[in-house]
Amino acid sequence: MIDVKNLSKSFGNHLVLDNLSQHIYPGEKVVVLGPSGSGKSTFLRCLNLLETPTSGTITFDGTDITDPKCDIDQVRQHMGMVFQHFNLFPNMTIRKNITLAPVRTRRMSQQEADDTATQLLRRVGLEEKADAYPNQLSGGQKQRIAIVRALAMRPKVMLFDEPTSALDPEMVGEVLDVMRQLADEGMTMVVVTHEMGFAREVGSRVLFMDGGHILEENKPQEFFANPKHPRTIEFLSKVL
């Protein structure tokens, strides 16, 4: 579904991603782990071109999205993204936050989008917040709305960039529950996170990154039970 070939990214002289190649298959739940500064967020952000790769190609559903002629807006309509800091639009209601993109990109009429919003909000238990503004919500609620906002576009893949890192510990659970539910429904997901429990339970494959390289990749059970790379062993001994 997403094919990454020889992806490199540098900021100035600082090489953040060093010649990565990966393939993400439909239905997979890929969890990317690693210490901060390892390039995992940059990797994720390259997948929908929020960061422009320095070199390499990324193909999504057969379209080379690194081609300058590619209409990236069109491609992004099929890739949902959830940010660490939610990035809800504070100047509009929750309903408007959710329906703006589907309506403006002509994927739905306002009526359809409103119905989709109601339906999705019910699913995450925030139906009554439709007419509230983002500032009136707690962090966990905001992040659930952010997930709903991305889902309203009916994406083929969801990218999560440390979705629980900015939350109070109490609220992490409610967001992970929504993500778990999404995973159960078969959504293709790429998740950058520090939640080891989530990685173990929900992930179908774990990538461990450090220094711009993918040092190890494995099924979660194997990965946590028998880490092979010395850096992975060191990392896991510190976080578990």
Partner: peptide, 25 residues
């Protein structure tokens, strides 16, 4: 900057993101 990124990540164009999200704020 996250506002622009969020708008663009939903598939909205630069001008739409400016018009509905960035400029009002």
């Amino acid at each position: 900057g996250g506002q622009m990124e969020a708008g663009r990540s939903l598939g909205l164009g630069y001008l739409d993101t400016m018009r509905f999200i960035v400029v009002p704020q």
